[in-house]
Design a protein around this nucleic acid. Structure first.
Lengths: 241, 241
DNA sequence: GAGTGGTCTAGACCACCGT
DNA sequence: CGGTGGTCTAGACCACTCT
């Protein structure tokens, strides 16, 4: 059942296996997963070990516990960690359900920075995507996304519908790769020609630049992304622990 | 020894008591605290319960564990959670050790927003401070800080040296209040007269506005802060979990 | 080797939820 | 009420660090 590196602690192997089952659809969003006692006998470990594994999944927002009822696969809604920022272009607290449009997708030679951020070897190739996030026809964000071609090669030939609207769930579903955390870096700058054009704003507009390195449970970088949005409509909210 | 609400789980009482001891200076920054076995006999609980308490302190960054060596009170250095942003005004990765200068400190009537963010009652008063963060004479950040007068009243009469350079450690030392997490919200705007003047920039300059609500372990807000810094020198880095 | 934290066990009892 | 997750125990053994 578990074929992970046996040097890893059991609770980490179990955590990854449960996450993989959810990714494979064995337990679906909103459903209850097996109880602690069941999992304990499935994996042949003590309940304490199961709890340790679930603790991490819960703190990653993959699973939600309900005392007395069970443990449930959390719906990947837009207010959770996978889609955590901004409410651009519209006033008030109205929730947005942004569309995303992938403009390009190709093999490309990574720059030294990308190579570093994805921890690529000197010969490794990479995948580059340009994507727009829009809401009601209005462009909110322009993203340049880099992935390791070794890990994500098949993404080049996949139906584009399988990659929308959110990429992280797609990484989970099709590659079993789970984004556990991310490092983000925000700066303010003036838009270059490409960015200004895609954001439908005059060149030289003030824009926010967000660099994000998405990292899995094993501390390995999965994705490097640089996003731009117009500064005057920008709101970024984050919980800092 | 422990006089907390006995309805709370033991591991939370112990976690708070250890934090209070550190705040009182019984264990100092950089020093090792008692071992798990010692704590287990001090508090009269099993080691597992101690570990649970320490887990939370470690994830809050109060304590650092070193396998085989012991558990250490973490130095509140500038790269950690208490002082997490920007590297303004200078190039490269050189670390900054910013000074802070408190410009004003007084009782004030909180606005509705402040009242909401600090969860104050309709009659509660508040403390307002204006503070500049500087590095080598250059102003990096201008902060407006609001506190509940009920919780932090004595701060008005304290020697100002007790409040520098960092406020959160001062809250811990003098009031036993520990900032466990914070919610931050970033936007970009143009500087008003006060902000521009304090940042030594022309009015109308593009500035970043950071609103931060600092929250304790019991999910009660401790502080509400609005900071401004010049946009073109701004860098904000954060780990998102 | 002695001492530390890290993992894991096999239970117990409690608090909460549904029927 | 039975079933669930939450807390807690009293150990065992392992991995790491220092001397």
């Amino acid at each position: 059942m578990i074929k992970a590196d046996p040097r890893l602690p059991r609770y980490q192997q179990i955590r990854d296996d449960i996450a993989a089952r959810i990714a494979r659809g064995e337990w679906k969003a909103g459903e209850a997963i097996a109880t602690e006692a069941e999992l304990s006998s499935i994996y042949g470990v003590a309940i304490g070990t199961i709890r340790r594994a679930i603790d991490e999944l819960a703190s990653d927002g993959v699973i939600e516990r309900a005392h007395g009822r069970g443990m449930f696969v959390r719906r990947a809604d837009f207010s959770t960690s996978l889609f955590r920022f901004f409410r651009l272009g519209s006033s008030g607290e109205r929730s947005i359900s942004p569309d995303s449009r992938i403009l390009s997708r190709s093999l490309a030679t990574p720059s030294d920075i990308v190579r570093d951020r994805l921890r690529l070897g000197p010969e490794d190739n990479a995948i580059r995507m340009i994507r727009l996030r829009t809401d009601g026809g209005k462009v909110l964000l322009r993203e340049e996304i880099w992935l390791s071609a070794t890990l994500f090669g098949p993404i080049l030939d996949m139906d584009i519908a399988m990659l929308t609207p959110l990429l992280y769930p797609a990484y989970e579903r099709h590659f079993g790769r789970i984004v556990a955390r991310a490092k983000e870096r925000l700066t303010v700058e003036t838009a270059d020609a490409n960015v200004a054009c895609d954001l439908e704003a005059p060149a030289g507009s003030s824009v926010v630049r967000i660099e994000r390195q998405a990292i899995d449970h094993a501390d390995h970088p999965l994705e490097w992304r640089t996003s731009h949005g117009l500064a005057d409509q920008f709101v970024y909210e984050v919980d800092v622990h």
